[in-house]
Design a protein around this nucleic acid. Structure first.
Lengths: 335, 335
DNA sequence: TTGTAGGCGTTATCAA
DNA sequence: TTGATAACGCCTACAA
C-alpha cells in the first residue's frame, strides 16, 4: 500500500516532517549532509511517494490545466490538443482533455468540474452557449483561453485562424481557374469559423462580380448533408467547383462523390478547409487549407501559462494565417 | 476571486460547516427544510464553488484516471483514448491523457507524477521498459490495465487485439489470391503486437508451404523505411503483395509507391493492419484489418473502474478479434 | 540547521 | 437534527 506518508519518513529518519519537506523541495541550503542522507535513505527504504494532492491544497496550484474541445471528431481539435499537451509537458504541467460533444450542457458541466478540481486554467473550444460562465471566469480573472471560435461580445484571450481570408484565397483560386459555378458546404452557421468562411466565400465572389446563388450555399447538419448535396448536384446548373467547409463536410462530399461516381478534380474541383491526413498521398491529391494547428496550440498554451504565472497582460486575440496547399483536386482549368 | 469556502457559507447561513457539508452531499435525511433553504441561499449569494481537491484529500479518491499511450501518433491510441474517455464520462470520472512518445523515461515520469497526483488508476500502452514500476503497481494492488501490448513475464490485466490470428487471415487472403511473393513491413520487433504480427505472417506462409525469405521481412525504424522498401522492390523477385504492419508503416509505403509511381492494388496488392481514415473512400479502397478500438477502450475502462471500486477480480487478459475488411487493394488475383 | 504548530478546505465521528 | 473536533498529507512561518 502506498500509504507511506511524510510523517513515516520523518520517524524512520529520526527527523521532523519539516526537514523531510525541505529535502523534497530541494531546499538543501541549511541542511547537514548526513541529515540529507538519512532522509534519502528513509525515503528509499519505505518507498515513499509524495502526495501532490495535499501539496496542491496548500499551494493552491495543481499544475493541471483543462482542455474542453467542442467536438473531438474534428481533426483540428486533436492536433491542437496534442500541441498543447506537448507545451504543457515541457513546462511540467498536465492537461485534462474533455469533449463537450457540441453540447453546451456538457461544456457547462466540464467547466464546473474542472474548476472544482482546481485546475489552474482552461483552454476552451467554446460552444458559445454558456456566456454566463465565460464572463464569470474572465471577471474573476481566472486564466482562460478561447480557441478556434470567437464568442460574440466576449473580450477574452483568443486564438483563431484567419478563416475569412483563407477562404477568399481558396475561392479566388477557383475563380482564377475559370470557375464561375462555385458551391460551399458547411455545417450550420452557429459558430464563428463557419460564418467567417461563408463570409470569405461571398466576398471572393462579389469581388469577382459573380452573383451569389443561395442554392450554392449549403449549411446544414452532417446528417442532412447527403440530401443537400443531392439537391445541389441535381440543379440544372450544378457547380463545377466545391468548397468543403471542414473535414467532416469533406467526408460527406467524398461519400457522395463515390456514390455518384464523380471524380474529384476531374468532374468537380474541390478544396477542403482543414488539413486532411493522406490528402497529399491520395491518387488525386486534395487541395486543402492548412490551419497551423501546432502553432495555435503552442500559442494558446503559452498564453494560458502566462496568465497562470501572473505575468499579467492585456487581453490578446491571435489570428493565425492559414496556408492554401494547391494540389490536383483544384488544378484543372475550365473554359 | 473564488476564495469562498465552506466556512464562509456556514457563517452566512448561520449554521456549521458540517451542515453545509451534509447539504452538499445530499444527505438530507435529518435536515430541516428551512436549514436546507438557508444553506442553499447562502451558497447562491456567495457564489460558492466546492473544492474537490480538499474533498479528495479526505476521501482518498480523485475520480481521475490516467492514460499513458506509448505513441499518440498511432490512430489506435487516439481511438482507444476517446473510447475510454467516453466511458469515464458516463461514470463521472476524468481522464488525463499522456504521451510517452515511445520513451521509457517519459513513461516512468508520467507513472510517477500521475500516481503522485493520486489518480485512481492507470491505463497504460506500455513501452515495456519499466518492469520495476509495472510490477510494483501490481504488487501494491494499484488499479492498472495494460493496453495493446503484452509485457513479457507480467501477470496483469491486459486488453489486446488478436494480432497473430488477424495477420494469418490477411496473409492467407493474399495466398488464396495466388500471391506467393508476399512481404511484410513493420517497425522494430520491440513490442508484442509487432512480434505477433510477424509470427502470424510466418505461420500463414508455412501452412501454405511457401518458403520464408528474410529479404521479404522488413522490421525497421520509420525513418529507415524508405530505404528498406527501396531494397525490397529492387530485388530480382520483388513482392507482388505487401503487408503493412501498422498505420505509420502504411504512410511510408504510400509515400514510397507514390514516388515510384506504383499503383496500389494494381502493381502491388496491399493490406494494412489498423484502420485508416478514408481507407474505404480512397480511389482504390484499401484492405485493412480493423481493431475494435472502441470495444477495447470500453473493456479496459470497465476493468479499471471495477478495480477502483474494489470489485476485485482475478487478473484478466482480453484478446479482441479483429476484422479483415477486404477492399480493392487486395482483390486482384495473380496467376 | 532543525523542529513546532497552524493551516489549506473538506469529510467523518460522535456528542449534544 | 445539528455542531465540535479531529483528521487527510503537506507546506511554511517562526522558534529553538
Amino acid at each position: 500500500m502506498a500509504k507511506v506518508t511524510m510523517a513515516d519518513v520523518a520517524k524512520e529518519a529520526g527527523v521532523s516532517k519539516s526537514t523531510v519537506s525541505q529535502f523534497l523541495n530541494k531546499r538543501y541550503e541549511y541542511m547537514g549532509e548526513d541529515t540529507k542522507r538519512k532522509v534519502d535513505e528513509a525515503i528509499k527504504r519505505l518507498g515513499y511517494q509524495p502526495n501532490y494532492l495535499a501539496r496542491s491544497l496548500k499551494q493552491k496550484r495543481t499544475s493541471m490545466i483543462g482542455i474542453i474541445v467542442a467536438n473531438i471528431m474534428h481533426r483540428l481539435s486533436t492536433e491542437v490538443s496534442r500541441s498543447i499537451e506537448d507545451y504543457c509537458h515541457e513546462h511540467d504541467m498536465q492537461a485534462i482533455l474533455c469533449n463537450a460533444d457540441d453540447n453546451p450542457e456538457k461544456e457547462r458541466k466540464y467547466i464546473e468540474v474542472l474548476r472544482a478540481k482546481q485546475v489552474d486554467g482552461l483552454i476552451i473550444f467554446p460552444t458559445g452557449q454558456n456566456m454566463d460562465l465565460y464572463e464569470n471566469m474572465i471577471k474573476e480573472g481566472y486564466p482562460v483561453v478561447f480557441m478556434d471560435r470567437k464568442v460574440e461580445g466576449l473580450k477574452a484571450n483568443t486564438v483563431v485562424a484567419a478563416n475569412s481570408e483563407a477562404t477568399v484565397e481558396a475561392v479566388s483560386h477557383f475563380i482564377s481557374n475559370g470557375h464561375k459555378r462555385i458551391a460551399i458546404a458547411t455545417q450550420p452557421l452557429s459558430i464563428s469559423p463557419r460564418v467567417d468562411r461563408l463570409h470569405g466565400y461571398k466576398q471572393a465572389l462579389i469581388e469577382a462580380e459573380i452573383p451569389l446563388r443561395q442554392e450554392y450555399m449549403i449549411h446544414t447538419e452532417i446528417k442532412n448533408m447527403q440530401e443537400e448535396l443531392e439537391k445541389l448536384f441535381s440543379l440544372k446548373q450544378p457547380p463545377t467547383a466545391l468548397f468543403a467547409g471542414n473535414d467532416l463536410a469533406f467526408l460527406e462530399v467524398l461519400e457522395f462523390f463515390n456514390g455518384k461516381r464523380l471524380k474529384i478534380g476531374k468532374d468537380v474541383a474541390l478544396i477542403v478547409f482543414d488539413n486532411i491526413p493522406f490528402a497529399h498521398l491520395a491518387e488525386t491529391p486534395v487541395t486543402t487549407i492548412a490551419q497551423p494547428a501546432h502553432e495555435m496550440g503552442q500559442q494558446a498554451a503559452e498564453l494560458l501559462l502566462k496568465q497562470i504565472d501572473d505575468e499579467v497582460q492585456d487581453v490578446q486575440e491571435y489570428v493565425f494565417p492559414c496556408e492554401l496547399l494547391i494540389r490536383e483536386s483544384s488544378r484543372r482549368k475550365v473554359e
